[in-house]
Design a protein around this nucleic acid. Sequence first.
DNA 1: ATCTGTTATTATGTATACACTGAAATATCA
DNA 2: TGATATTTCAGTGTATACATAATAACAGAT
Lengths: 236, 236
Amino acid sequence: MTENSSTPTAGKRSMVDAAYSELRERILHNIMPPGQSALEEELALQLGMSRTPVREALIRLANDGLVDIIPRRGIRVREVTARDIREINEVLGCLEVQAAERLAARRPGEAEIAQLEEAVRAMDDALEAEDMIAWSRADYRFHCLIIDLCGNRHLAETARLFLDKAHRSRLLTLPYRTRPVYSNVNHAAVLEAIRRGDSQTAGEIHGAHKRRWTRELNDIIDRMDVASDSDSHPVD
Amino acid sequence: MTENSSTPTAGKRSMVDAAYSELRERILHNIMPPGQSALEEELALQLGMSRTPVREALIRLANDGLVDIIPRRGIRVREVTARDIREINEVLGCLEVQAAERLAARRPGEAEIAQLEEAVRAMDDALEAEDMIAWSRADYRFHCLIIDLCGNRHLAETARLFLDKAHRSRLLTLPYRTRPVYSNVNHAAVLEAIRRGDSQTAGEIHGAHKRRWTRELNDIIDRMDVASDSDSHPVD
DNA sequence: ATCTGTTATTATGTATACACTGAAATATCA
DNA sequence: TGATATTTCAGTGTATACATAATAACAGAT
């Protein structure tokens, strides 16, 4: 009877949903670290339910690429290799650029602009205060907003998935990162282009930002000792 | 993740896999047309298995965006609205451009180039013979190859999903299409850029091709009478 | 001692059983 | 007749039971 109330979102969710979000949280927050294996029954016991809803949740998690289901041998939290980090970052980059262009082209309303402004301001404040946790959260919020407001549901859904995948690698790379001063400048510039409805500039700046980040990421990965999974650097 | 084996080398598929691919085929080939609803038990009966594997297959199909699971009222094959067609096409476009760039940058080997050449040749032959079915298949093969060979697994997997989604709308738009002479020219040019390892040109041509197709698609959609789902044309 | 064939175990994959929910259908009342 | 309350009922959501396959343990032989 593990009443695990880590998710304060109390609603009329089915047990499958409960299992899904709980396990997802655990994986995203490294409570279940990459490589860890588990048994369906064990998880069911922990979550206080039978195997059936756990199984169904696991299928969704496998679809999201967070766990591997090994045919008769239970499940494993998927490892994040250097290659994965690079690949995920590449896909996310191209989706986000598209989202930024799309968002600018659709001329969002004042309320939406205000949300973006708030996120940028929060990032500036956090950087000033040297509060990297707060900065990271605000950065995440900004990217989420670009994605969610872009007006293309399919794009938003897919990009959101990759943003979450990227979050897992962020945890690995965070200690290696330098002060993200460029990020703030770029985000402000992107926002300005969006406000003007200048789709092309929004895309270009966001793209340049992403490429710079990709280079930095490659340096970080080289300094880290993660499994490389036989991958050569992508050419920029 | 889910080993999407399009290869006919059927090993020992579990019943879940069988249900998944069977239902997927039915939906993709319009045997179960959009909007059609069904009951789990009914499908289980048709497929000669119990509800459990069918349910699990349905979860995956829902994740792929092919069906909607209505909480207590069974499942429905998802409708393809005009908005969906446009959105899917947009995402696929941006992923494919990235894949083309990536592939060119990667300098694929002779064997891989040969596969692409074969597809282009098949397209030319089919166009000459006015065999639109064969053309469509070769076109599909070409796009699959660009995606599968790009070297980024995550990109490939995601793009593949969207290619399949696009396939469904292709069925709707096919009767409205004009002779795809531009496609063949473009594909040949992309292939040439890939052969030279000219990543930028490959991306540009493929992108231009996609944009032209997007315009044509918008015209087609206007002429069709599909549910529009309150969507304005994306700005190009 | 190592290798191999057999048995035993164990967790999954699938089937079935059951409870709960939401809606259609019927009944009751104004 | 129309509106509302009640009942019924079909179908999902969840739990449990069972069969199967894969591995681990073990014994016997070389």
